[in-house]
């Protein structure tokens, strides 16, 4: 495996999107991880006397209407975004990939059922349905994660099935069957390793979408609830204060945009690197 990854790494360094996206993503994740241990100020510390401060040495990005440090809030919000995205994408992959692999391996009526259920899920706009689910189940971080996760399932199920069907037609699968392996074993040992690159790329892109979706839900007040910090909620609160303290809206907005942009660039670059057929000529 080591040689293969060295090759991927070498190709990656030549792709601009991969490098820029990778660096942005890495910074974002580092910020989230460091926020678990350290933030400049306690996140929930309300000091009304220092509210609406501008950019200063003590408060790098200023403070909000309750005197909370904006840098600390953004860092804690990053943790929230990462956590939601990881769990949501993990939920989508954890259920969607086995479903898709099973549909491809078994085919027949099982395939039909899984794919028609997929079509059903696809028929609803994801974010709108997430709004509906959180509205029904009550707002909150956990419910929003589940809502976003559910709409990741069909994405991964369909992708896995399509890619797996192509692999199932290849001769080494026949060779594996000849050596006495059942469909389950072949799926795990032969099919999944061959479609891993496609899944990784999709996971990166879904990760970005999940962050966006969480921000959207929180902005609508259906996602993360106070006092838990969240980028979407910060935007919502800043809305009424736009003219008084525009930086309260600008910085969380920039955080969301940069992170999603970085992840998308990274995903696109990763696809170029992992899939030679899509590699662009330069």
């Amino acid at each position: 495996m080591s040689e293969g990854w060295a090759e991927v790494w070498r190709m990656g360094l030549r792709s601009r999107g991969f490098v820029i996206g990778g660096v942005v993503t890495l910074i974002f994740i580092l910020i989230a991880v460091s926020a678990l241990i350290w933030t400049p100020y306690p996140v929930a510390e309300i000091v009304v006397s220092r509210r609406f401060q501008g950019i200063s040495a003590a408060h790098w990005l200023g403070t909000d209407q309750f005197g909370r440090d904006l840098v600390s809030l953004l860092m804690a919000g990053a943790v929230n975004s990462v956590a939601v995205a990881i769990v949501a994408v993990g939920l989508g992959m954890g259920i969607g990939v086995p479903l898709g692999a099973l549909a491809a391996a078994r085919q027949g009526w099982l395939d039909e059922i899984v794919m028609r259920a997929n079509d059903f899920a696809f028929a609803f706009p994801a974010l709108l349905s997430a709004v509906m689910i959180t509205a029904l189940a009550g707002p909150g971080a956990v419910n929003s994660i589940i809502a976003i996760g559910i709409f990741n399932i069909p994405v991964f199920a369909r992708l896995t099935r399509g890619a797996a069907l192509v692999v199932w037609k290849r001769e080494f699968i026949l060779a594996a069957r000849v050596s006495g392996k059942g469909p389950l074993r072949i799926s795990v040992e032969h099919v999944l390793p061959n479609i891993a690159s496609v899944l990784i790329v999709q996971a990166t892109i879904q990760f970005a979408l999940a962050i966006l979706a969480e921000a959207g839900l929180s902005y609508l007040g259906l996602g993360t609830q106070p006092p838990q910090p969240s980028w979407g909620k910060m935007l919502n609160e800043a809305q009424t204060l736009m003219f008084l303290a525009p930086q309260l809206a600008i910085f969380p907005g920039m955080a969301i945009a940069l992170t999603v942009l970085g992840l998308n660039l990274f995903g696109d670059g990763l696809r170029d690197v992992l899939d030679p057929r899509l590699r662009r000529e330069r």
């Binding site: 293969g4 080494f172 032969h190 390793p193 891993a196």
Partner: peptide, 9 residues
């Protein structure tokens, strides 16, 4: 060429 899985040693 095709009877071996390309990603398994």
């Amino acid at each position: 060429m095709t009877a071996l899985n390309p990603v398994v040693p």
